[in-house]
Simulated scan of single mutants.
Amino acid sequence: MTAAVATFDNAPVVERRQRDWVLIGLWIALVLVAIVWIAPFIFIIFTSLKSTAQVMNSSAFAPPTEPQFSNYAAAWARGRFSTTFFNSAIITVIKVPLGLFISAMAAYALAKIEFKGNKLLLLLILFGTMIPFQVMLAPLFTLVNGLHLIDTYPGVILPYMAFGIPYQVFILHGFFRGIPKELSEAARIDGASHFVIFWRIFLPVTLPVLAALLILDFVSTWNEFAMALVLLQDQKMWTLPLGLSAFQGQFSRDYGQLNSAIVMTVLPATIVYLIFQRYFVSGLTSGAVKG
């Protein structure tokens, strides 16, 4: 009897030790994955601060002995990144908020307004998420060229929105469906229109999801290359990825300036991610709507 009790008392200890070993294994795996992801960024940053001679005569992950901050100014001037940065900023700042707003309104209408054919319309919109945009580049160029929008901001913004909105509607539609209908019904009884309900009730509740979609949409728009390459043929309208590709082709042996250009290209997207990630996490942990 005493042995049985002792065995029973030791069971939680054994289980706790097994759980601790599992957690230790997970932490080790996470650390290894983090090292694999961080190592290329460390290499790029260190190389961007080295001269060509330092790059050739030192280890790839050795910190620069004499940081060459002039690489950034030289790369900015030689690559004409002021023009490409401005173009990317205009396209992204217009496309991302406008696309999210349209997606949110469309998702609200499909989720909360009953009308004939809304399910069919949702399926048609979701069909856009199943089409790889690579197979649409040729007909897309023909369409944009027929509208005389080649080498224009609308000629890039509109296709970006067309391929981005279906995915956003899919995510937001599922979120709106989970919000209790009593919220909108009470507002409708008080005489509020659907736009007022959407703007004052549903949009604030959706801020965590919108923050996540904003991060994803900003990064994908900022780094988009293939569609911009087809639709923007004038160098004065090039975006940052196109400018970086041209810079790499011209100055591929100037490793310091090339890596400086890479850092300047990815830095805005990294800053936006770090800013909105904080609001995203706080929004997810702030609570949920109760019916």
Score class of each variant (00 low, 15 high):
residue 100 L to P: 02
residue 41 F to R: 00
residue 272 V to H: 07
residue 283 G to L: 00
residue 3 A to V: 13
residue 51 S to W: 00
residue 208 P to Q: 04
residue 77 A to T: 14
residue 232 L to N: 09
residue 96 V to P: 06
residue 182 E to Y: 08
residue 182 E to A: 15
residue 199 W to Q: 13
residue 51 S to A: 01
residue 209 V to H: 04
residue 137 L to V: 11
residue 33 V to E: 08
residue 54 Q to L: 02
residue 23 L to H: 11
residue 263 V to C: 00
residue 28 I to G: 13
residue 76 W to C: 00
residue 238 W to N: 13
residue 108 Y to H: 07
residue 155 G to T: 13
residue 147 L to W: 12
residue 235 Q to H: 07
residue 153 Y to Q: 02
residue 2 T to N: 14
residue 208 P to N: 03
residue 81 F to D: 06
residue 242 L to Y: 10
residue 42 I to G: 05
residue 254 D to R: 00
residue 18 Q to G: 06
residue 262 I to W: 01
residue 116 K to P: 04
residue 252 S to T: 02
residue 151 D to R: 09
residue 288 A to D: 09
residue 250 Q to P: 02
residue 179 I to T: 10
residue 262 I to A: 11
residue 264 M to K: 00
residue 46 F to T: 05
residue 140 L to N: 10
residue 202 F to T: 12
residue 248 Q to N: 12
residue 234 D to F: 07
residue 163 F to R: 02
residue 22 V to K: 12
residue 39 A to W: 11
residue 209 V to C: 03
residue 280 F to L: 14
residue 236 K to E: 11
residue 94 I to D: 02
residue 21 W to K: 13
residue 266 V to D: 03
residue 48 S to C: 01
residue 96 V to H: 08
residue 30 L to W: 10
residue 259 N to H: 10
residue 150 I to R: 02
residue 271 I to P: 06
residue 38 I to P: 00
residue 219 V to H: 01
residue 75 A to Q: 01
residue 223 N to A: 01
residue 227 M to E: 05
residue 1 M to W: 10
residue 213 L to H: 06
residue 124 L to K: 02
residue 176 F to H: 07
residue 162 A to S: 14
residue 218 F to N: 01
residue 16 R to N: 08
residue 261 A to K: 08
residue 106 A to V: 13
residue 11 A to D: 10
residue 172 L to R: 04
residue 149 L to V: 06
residue 285 T to L: 12
residue 266 V to P: 04
